[in-house]
Each structure stands twice: as C-alpha cells, then as structure tokens.
Computed example of a mutant assay.
Amino acid sequence: MSVLDRAAPPHTEQDAPAQAPRSARRALTVGALFTGLTLALIALVLLAAGVGQLRVPPAEVLGSVLHRLGLDIGPMPGHPQGEAALWTIRFPRVAMALLVGAALATAGALMQGVFGNPLAEPGVVGVSSGAAVGACAVIVTGASFLGPWTVAVAAFVCGLITTLLVYATARDGGRTEVVTLVLTGVAVNAVAGALLGLLTFLGDTQAREQIVFWQLGSLNGTRWPYVAVVAPVVLVGLVGAMVVARRLDLLALGERAARHLGVDVERLRLGTVVLVALLTAVAVAFVGIIAFVGLVVPHLVRMAVGPGHRVLVPASALGGAVLLVGADLVARTAVPYADLPIGMLTAVVGGPFFFWLIRRTRRSAGGWA
C-alpha cells in the first residue's frame, strides 16, 4: 500500500455525488479567474499604451496592433506621431511591465511553495539586495565595461551570486533547513543594506540620485532590446516553474512524505531557488527593486483557486502582469508631467496587505509556533 493510499481514506459511492459538484465548482472558478485576468490584461495593455502626453484611443491602439500582425482591421492612429509613440516608447514599457510582473509573481509563488509559508517572497534569499549592490557599485564607480548594459548585467550577476551564496551557506551535512535558509537570507540582506548605505555615502550627487531612483524601481526608459533580453529568461523561468509545480504539491505533504513519493527534496529546493533567483534577478536588473508583487499576487490567487501549483503558478504569472501593468499606468498618470517610482506604489499597497496577512496568519494558527 502506498503512502497516498494510507493517507487518504477510500472513496465510497456515497462520496462521488458530493465530490462531483465540488470539482465542477472549482473548475468553474479557475476558468472564471483565468478569463477575468486575461480580459483585464488585454484592456489594461490597450489603455496603458494609449495614455500619455500624446493620447491614442484604445480602438486605434488595437488597430495598430492588428495592422502590425498583417490584418487591416480597425482605425490607425490619427496623429502623425501616434504610430511611432506606440511602438518606440509605449509598447516596450508595457511589455516590460507585463514580463516583470509575471516573473516576480511566479517567483513569489515558488518561494511560498518551497518554504511552505505564505509570508515568503523572493527577497528572502537575498536576490534583490544582491542585485542592488551590484548595480549601485557600478553606478558609483562609473564602470562601463559593457556600455549601457553594464548596470543591468552587474545587477543580474550579483543577484544570482548572492542567492547561490545564501543557499550554499545554509547547507549543513547535505541538507538545507528552511529556517536556516531564511535566517541566512536575513543576514545577507542586512549586510547588503550596509553596503548600499556605504555606496550611497561614497557617491556624488548624481550617483546618489541614480541609486535612490533605482532602488525605488521604474520602467522609464525601457526599450525593445531590453525586452528582448528579459523575455526569453522569463519564458524559461515560467516553463521551469510549471515543471516543478507537481513536485511542490507533493512537498506540501511534508518532506518525509514527499521523499516516500519519489521527490528528491534537496534537488527540488535547489532548482526552485535557482528559478526564483533567475526570475527575480532579470526583473530587478532592468527596472530596479519592485517590492511586494511576489508576496501579494500569489496569496490572492491562492485564496481564489487553492494551493495547487499547477494552477497557482500560471494564474500568479497572469495576475502579476495585470498588477504591474496597472501600477505602471497609475505611476505615469497619477501626477501630471511626472513619472512616479513604481516600486513606491507597490510598497504602498503591499505594506498594509503584508500587515493584514501577518495578523490573519497569526489568528488562523492560534499564535506563532
């Protein structure tokens, strides 16, 4: 008899009628969630691409997209500069928001799955702080060994190195304890914070402004070459997340049960942490630190459709894209002739949500274990 057979009682004929409506309701909920998120994302993309100093109606935005796809359907932008504004400035920024939102939310879902804690988020393993140190070091020193790509590459590499360092430090006797990993991440984040303070102190006025702006996060200045770098990395990360989704469901049963079911827990944990580092580092490298997306979105999706990662991961990616495209739209339009840091907006929303989540988790658990 397998572990699953022992863990779950056999289903009787009386159970079937009760389970069928429950499965149908869940399938309906999942379908409604994906449909709603997809429609919301399409609407936000059309709206965000048309909003700016040069306004382009959504119908003309859609017509421009269809025209690029070879379909002469719908009106084209009436302003002579409308087409150039859409495809040179607006669409790269919207595409980057979509990719970064999907990457951060997927990374958050993976972190919460591998740690078994809804309070986990990608910054726990130090990837964001490590990337920030790399980027800020390049800004202060004025290094330009890769031209305009220097800051992004330095942030990406330092984020990956920091994450692998945290994981290697947390290993003990071939095993990695989750608590040790989290505490190591906290220590690394503290050291990275001190290094950021030192770099800010050493930098000149222009460097300090760049550091502050980079730490607050912004999609301003996004171009298609940046999107072309981020897109394949995010795609690989999403595919990898779907590959490990079923094993994360088994890990939710407990490490011992997962091992009995054939899951190599250490390999799964290492692979998942690498995926989180990859997704977060490539997002942070081009837009700076954007907080709380990886915490808020997966938790909200989990409340709607349950903890199964084969649904949670793609739904979180879609929800993250919706959230960040919408947040960037607010960042560009909330204050006339100003571009607010998008990381500041997500923190304003995410901070109170995190506080509510802590209180809710404490009440449901009857106190901290």
Rank of each mutant, 00 (worst) to 15 (best):
L235W: 10
G173V: 03
L219G: 05
V243P: 04
F156G: 11
A192Y: 08
G197A: 12
V186R: 01
V234W: 09
R246V: 10
E177N: 13
L165R: 03
V179A: 14
L202K: 11
L219Q: 05
A187H: 08
L238D: 09
L202D: 14
L164S: 06
Y167A: 05
T222C: 10
G185L: 08
R223A: 15
V234H: 11
L251I: 05
G174E: 03
Y167L: 12
L181G: 03
Q206W: 11
L248M: 09
A228G: 12
V234G: 08
I211N: 07
L251D: 02
G203P: 13
L196C: 11
Y167F: 15
D172A: 13
G203N: 08
V236R: 02
G185M: 05
L202H: 13
V244D: 05
A155V: 03
A155Y: 09
N189A: 05
A187F: 04
W214A: 02
A170N: 00
T184V: 14
R246H: 15
V212R: 06
A168N: 09
L235N: 04
L235F: 15
L165F: 13
L250E: 08
A192W: 06
L202N: 13
A187I: 05
L250D: 07
N189K: 01
R246E: 09
V182R: 03
V179M: 10
V179S: 08
R223K: 15
D204F: 02
V243G: 01
Q215I: 02
L250M: 12
I211G: 03
T176L: 04
L183D: 00
G185T: 02
V212M: 06
V188N: 04
W224L: 09
P232K: 09
V236L: 13
V188W: 01
P232F: 07
R246P: 00
G173S: 05
P225S: 07
V179E: 12
L202P: 10
A170C: 02
L165C: 13
W224P: 00
L248Q: 00
A168G: 03
V234D: 04
F201Y: 15
L216C: 01
V244Q: 04
V233C: 09
V188Y: 02
T162S: 10
G193S: 07
E177C: 04
Q206T: 15
T205C: 03
G173Y: 01
V182F: 00
A194I: 14
Q206Y: 12
M242Y: 14
V229C: 13
T184D: 02
